[in-house]
Design a protein around this nucleic acid. Sequence first.
DNA 1: CAATAAAATGACCGACAGTCATTTTTTATA
DNA 2: TATAAAAAATGACTGTCGGTCATTTTATTG
Lengths: 219, 219
Amino acid sequence: MGIAERKEREKEQRRQAIIDAAEKVFFTKGYDSSTMDDIAEAAELSKGTLYLYFQSKDELHFEIMDRGNEILMGFMEKAIDPEKSGRENLRFLGEAFVEFSNRYPEYFQAMMFFQSRDVVQQKLNEQKLKKFIEGRSSISLLNAMVTKGIADGSVRNDLPVSHLTTLLWSQMMGILVMYSTKKPAFEYQQISRDQLVSIHLDLVRDGLKPRHTEDSGHE
Amino acid sequence: MGIAERKEREKEQRRQAIIDAAEKVFFTKGYDSSTMDDIAEAAELSKGTLYLYFQSKDELHFEIMDRGNEILMGFMEKAIDPEKSGRENLRFLGEAFVEFSNRYPEYFQAMMFFQSRDVVQQKLNEQKLKKFIEGRSSISLLNAMVTKGIADGSVRNDLPVSHLTTLLWSQMMGILVMYSTKKPAFEYQQISRDQLVSIHLDLVRDGLKPRHTEDSGHE
DNA sequence: CAATAAAATGACCGACAGTCATTTTTTATA
DNA sequence: TATAAAAAATGACTGTCGGTCATTTTATTG
């Protein structure tokens, strides 16, 4: 009996349709200013129905972040050139990130600024956490390229992979977030984002080079 | 007649008392979960009175951020050693930032996570913007040390001061924010924040060295 | 064509930021 | 000191919104 399967399919379609609607509304009015009734109207459903598919407004936000992450992953995977060294690929990944934020600014925003709501802080600690570290995430790609870089000798091997990876990710995130939130200040100082990122990636590239000298004073 | 002056003084005292109360409540329950009635109760005033002194809940948040910024400034000013090179001082500033976030985690949180609310985004564009760039802000201190570093030859001079400054600020911010929001993930990977920051500061120190010359004469 | 199950609805609730007519307190005036 | 005027404070009230649930509508089954 294919009815069950069809129902399953329809349910998933409706789920996606709701996310589509939420996306449209969020991207237009911003998260805080969007109401569940707005989303319901956009989805041509009643508010109650939304709650049959999602537990909360926050959950809709999460779904959109997931979509963004998928897209970002695509960009990054495409950017990798297996022929090139790990260190070169790390630069490609950085550039892919920027390209993503240019091409999909709304997704980028959604991914950047979901932090902060105190509620959200807790929810992460569960399944999402594992996903963040091990799952199909952008970080895992970054991790792979750091590892590759160390293996092929293009990246210094005196620093732990996990530390380098998170460092690269956090730094880039910090730059892009800062630029987004303080854009007018940057423009006022005539700092373009591409310039900034380019300088950053240059500094990182140099910083990752293997130390040919045995010095450097950290532990 | 000192009545006007006394009133002025009392008004300012009450203002501060309200901020004190808001601080207590925000730091205990978190911003989103705190209600204006909570704050009113803590301040032993009615809610209406709060609105005679502040326009909104957000404004109270801003005030607390300002306090945090003052404290941070103090830390940074104290950290500067005029005898040492600009490049060394930049490291001191980084360490001061971390120390601040250890000593005053609630202020730190408040300063980190005020971004995101879509409303807030707009409000910055006005006076706050100038303050951010030119005012008595942590960034201006950073800027001064970059400038000093270039002048004394301890920092490479082939990159614009403004870019370097914002880069350093954004990177550090990114690392600390990421660590705060994803703390469990970091702990799971046994990455300590101090380690991470230390590696970051090392990389920065190396990256800032003048190119083409192995200048270390100012150390 | 019932009987039943699944899906959808929208009126309703509680919580909360913000308002404002009224009351209380302080100051100025005579 | 008595009283008018100004300043400060109050808290009942409003509108909004996320989330709920008893009821209705639609689809499935026998």
